[in-house]
Design a protein around this nucleic acid. Structure first.
Length: 221
DNA sequence: CCACTAACCTATTCACCCG
DNA sequence: CGGGTGAATAGGTTAGTGG
């Protein structure tokens, strides 16, 4: 069935954006700037984006990941000589805080109109975890950048959990943690709201055929 | 096969406006 | 002041790249 589709495209998972492969020159530039300032403001990120020809959102993600990598390694390195932190006064004078605090720390707040909110809201009710294709479609529908849409969904999920109908009590999904993304069984009819999305987005994420052992540590009080 | 890491996620906090 | 919400942080998970 469905011989036409997925003949050999290998179905790139569709949910995630295609992984970017950074060229050595790009990596070098990013690492260099990271040393100077691990918390670049929006202006710096956008300048880098132009100079390296990488989307600003990818630059932001790279810095996020890089900070985690460095902190992790930092911690690992210090752990070995944990007996007596030699330079344990790691209160490094934050020179970069200056840049961070001065002015363009943050991107200017994006204003989202009621009509745009309405579109996003409808999509949210259908699928709280939109694929990259859906996000881009919503971007074209609303005229908002895709990265802002991704953030909008993150914020929305965080502040509107479960969202059961006027039911104060929780639903069955008391733990969104262990069960990654079991997207609710969407009604096909309801889905036909956003064109282009409904077609293949009906089967979005497959939860995780993997070992669900993943992470059940937090529970088990 | 497996290390590395981009992409994605949650949880929490900051920032800013507005009634 | 507190509620609403966009943007940032730390840090963990998923999955593609490439040795």
């Amino acid at each position: 069935m469905a011989p036409t589709s997925t003949s050999k495209i290998s179905l790139p998972c569709g949910s995630r954006r295609r992984r970017l492969v950074l060229k050595p020159t790009q990596q070098g530039a990013l690492h260099a700037l990271f040393q100077q300032n691990p918390y670049p403001g929006i202006a710096t990120r956008e300048r880098l984006a132009r100079e390296l020809d990488i989307p600003e959102s990818r630059i932001q993600v790279w810095f996020q990941n890089q900070r985690t990598r460095q902190l992790r390694q930092s911690r690992l390195g210090s752990a070995k000589s944990q007996g007596q932190g030699p330079t344990h006064g790691q209160e490094q004078p934050p020179s970069w805080t200056q840049e961070h605090f001065t002015k363009d720390g943050r991107r200017k707040r994006t204003s989202i109109s009621p009509s745009q909110t309405s579109i996003l809201l409808q999509a949210f009710e259908k699928n709280r975890f939109p694929s990259i294709a859906t996000r881009e479609h919503l971007a074209s529908l609303t005229g908002l950048p895709e990265s802002r849409i991704q953030v909008w969904f993150q914020n929305r999920r965080a502040r509107h959990p479960g969202q059961s109908r006027s039911g104060p009590v929780k639903d069955m999904e008391a733990h969104p943690k262990p069960s990654p993304y079991v997207t609710v069984p969407v009604e096909p009819g309801l889905l036909a709201r956003v064109p282009g999305v409904s077609s293949f987005d009906t089967h979005f994420f497959v939860p995780h055929p993997k070992g669900n052992t993943s992470s059940n540590m937090s529970a088990l009080a």
